[in-house]
């Protein structure tokens, strides 16, 4: 009897058809299994690396010859062109949401804060990598200045650029928000951020893939839940094409 059941079990496993997977992938069950696998990866990474362990930093001599711009390569408005031409004198970074003191920070103010310089590797979800030196204040400095309330669980990054007619945005949890390498970069390789790389401000989320590193940054918003932000999946690509919210793999 045991032999009979084993045979059925093994034959069933052997017959698991891949063709079926093509439609299966869009079912409720599959997406809940996928979400579980994603959260296991996140929890495994956090357990192994802890909350504060740094991504490797390179020597300045190891910077890659070019740093590709991907996704949005500009913000297609006359206001942006005018700001770009004049060095972003009127650009403001709004710090809002679950904070005691909402802020509106100019580029000059951000430059005057304590700066972190880091040479890190940028990994795109497509598979390529580039190495660059980034300069900017730590997000934690700004969150502390604004006084993030205890009920905040996520930080949402608001952007000026649009793709497919939608405003780009991204989000991270408080672990990545307070990670020492999470900075608001205004320089790449010692120069003001190039247009294609997100001028004048972009996020660096060094332990996750490139689509988390929001460019053309206009706002930082502390929220309790992502349900009411965008379509509720925590980011532009997450909403548009079901990309994984946790992009550490």
């Amino acid at each position: 009897m045991a032999e009979f059941e084993r045979r059925h079990l093994l034959a069933g496993l052997a017959a698991l058809g891949v063709g079926a997977c093509s439609r299966l992938g869009e079912s409720e069950t599959a997406s809940s299994i996928f979400d579980t696998a994603e959260s296991w990866h996140r929890e495994a990474h956090r357990a192994l690396a802890g909350r504060q362990r740094l991504a490797p930093e390179f020597d300045r001599s190891q910077v890659s010859p070019s740093f590709r711009g991907n996704g949005s390569l500009t913000v297609d408005t006359p206001e942006y062109r005018a700001e770009l031409a004049n060095g972003f004198p009127n650009w403001r970074l709004a710090v809002t949401g679950l904070v005691d003191r909402p802020l509106s920070l100019s580029i000059e103010t951000l430059r005057a804060l304590p700066q972190r310089v880091q040479v890190t590797r940028h990994d795109c979800v497509e598979g390529w990598s580039a190495i660059g030196e980034w300069t900017g204040p730590q997000l934690s400095t700004i969150l502390d200045a604004a006084g993030v309330r205890p009920e905040a669980n996520f930080v949402v990054f608001r952007c000026a650029d649009t793709l497919y007619g939608r405003r780009y945005y991204e989000s991270v949890d408080m672990v990545d928000a307070y990670h020492p390498q999470t900075i608001i970069a205004h320089q790449l390789n010692g120069e003001n951020l190039p247009e294609k790389n997100g001028a004048p401000l972009r996020m660096r989320i060094e332990r996750q893939l490139g689509y988390k590193h929001a460019k053309y940054l206009t706002g930082i918003e502390a929220v309790a839940s992502l349900d009411d932000v965008g379509e509720g999946k925590g980011g532009f690509w997450e909403d548009v094409a079901d990309y994984q919210w946790y992009a550490g793999i």
Binding site: C21, G25, A30, A37, Q244
Partner: peptide
């Protein structure tokens, strides 16, 4: 996988789930 359409997000879901 998925077959006959390019869907990187879904391919990554399959890949990172089967990897476990």
């Amino acid at each position: 996988l998925p077959m006959f359409r390019y869907d990187l997000a879904e391919a990554r879901d399959w890949h990172n789930t089967a990897a476990w």
